[in-house]
């Protein structure tokens, strides 16, 4: 089997195994927890497509994520569309949002893109708060169906949906790493000016990466109204999503898709436990603190630590 095929088969097998294990546990809380962890895996992998592969920092994860969630709310309310259609639409909306942001700011130094995405969340939130149809500041309710197709339990359906999205996201990220797009992005990360001089279409590659990354974040947010049943702008646009996606990726390591997956699984599993035992504010404080420690002391993340440790083992 070729390497890409092996990876995709492995991902599918891991997915089926996860579903079977959770079926054995058969507990609503397990589906819920699994959903949140997978949502962060998808967000972190998506964030890393831009940050890890091309070196551009996106502070707007919450904005892209919430744009996806509100696409679902609006489409459900206006046309009563199926969630699966909403997920696709959310990917398109957030992807277009990424494309627009990128088109406006990606010709400049990277920090301007970061700054623009940072305020994107504030403005989209202002828009939603002032839009009564979308629920305004008081939020919107979404009726959750009893079951869906072969899934007797709607929580299980949401889990499987997020699982498919997360594994799909990993497959896309791994595909980008091997593709010409990935190589081009790597040249941008290492020396953008030299890359442009050597004929790499830097702006086009960055725009494609921003659109893919934003679209994936939107898809991660699309099932949220069904997961939570009630969504207000404060929860949807919470900076928690942004800091988590960043921290998980940087803690795991940015060199490939494995880093964000490790970081997201570790950190969100810990968080699921910590939210029960300590407050959500304390939880966020820990994430921020760990992020600071990692970028200072282990800038290559857990993967970098493992590699350094292995390297030392070889020479000894």
């Amino acid at each position: 089997m070729s390497r890409p095929l092996r990876l995709n088969v492995g991902l599918a097998a891991a997915g089926v195994a996860l579903i079977l294990i959770l079926r054995l546990i058969d507990n609503d809380y397990a589906w819920y927890t699994g959903y949140v962890i997978l949502q962060y895996v998808l967000l972190a992998v998506a964030w890393n497509i831009l940050a890890g592969y091309s070196g551009y920092v996106n502070f707007g994860t919450a904005a892209f994520f919430a744009a996806g969630a509100y696409t679902t709310i609006l489409l459900t309310k206006a046309l009563n569309l199926d969630l699966l259609v909403c997920v696709l639409a959310a990917g398109l909306v957030s992807g277009a949002l990424g494309l627009g942001m990128g088109w406006l700011t990606l010709r400049l130094r990277g920090v301007y893109f970061s700054i623009a995405t940072l305020s994107l969340a504030v403005v989209l939130q202002t828009l939603v708060v002032n839009w009564p149809y979308a629920g305004g500041s008081s939020g919107a309710y979404t009726m959750r169906p009893q079951g869906y197709a072969v899934f007797g339990n709607y929580s299980e359906f949401l889990f499987v949906l997020m699982l498919v999205l997360a594994l799909g996201g990993i497959a896309v990220a791994a595909g980008i790493e091997r593709s010409r797009l990935g190589l081009g992005l790597a040249t941008i990360r290492d020396d953008e000016r030299a890359a442009a001089a050597a004929g790499v279409p830097t702006l086009r590659l960055k725009l494609i990466a921003t659109a893919i990354s934003g679209g994936m974040m939107g898809m991660a947010g699309a099932p949220l109204p069904y997961y939570a049943s009630y969504l207000n702008p404060e929860a949807a646009f919470s900076l928690t999503h942004t800091i988590n996606a960043m921290a998980m990726t940087l803690i795991g390591g940015t060199q490939g898709w494995v880093g964000p997956v490790i970081g997201a699984t570790l950190l969100s599993t810990l968080q699921q436990g910590a939210t029960v035992t300590i407050s959500s504010a304390g939880n966020l404080l820990i994430v921020g603190g760990v992020l600071i420690l990692f970028v200072m002391l282990a800038p290559k993340g857990i993967l970098g630590l493992i590699r350094a440790w292995r390297g030392r083992g070889d020479t000894a």
Binding site: I243, A247, A281, L285, V295
Partner: peptide, 29 residues
């Protein structure tokens, strides 16, 4: 930790973002 290593672009930005979150959450706590 950042300027001397040449890591300002990504790690440095993440550092200040983390600092911002830590300040805000500490104020809430």
């Amino acid at each position: 930790y950042f300027e001397r290593r040449g890591d300002e672009a990504m790690q440095g930005l993440a550092f200040f973002f983390g600092l911002m979150i830590v300040i805000e959450v500490s104020l809430v706590l």
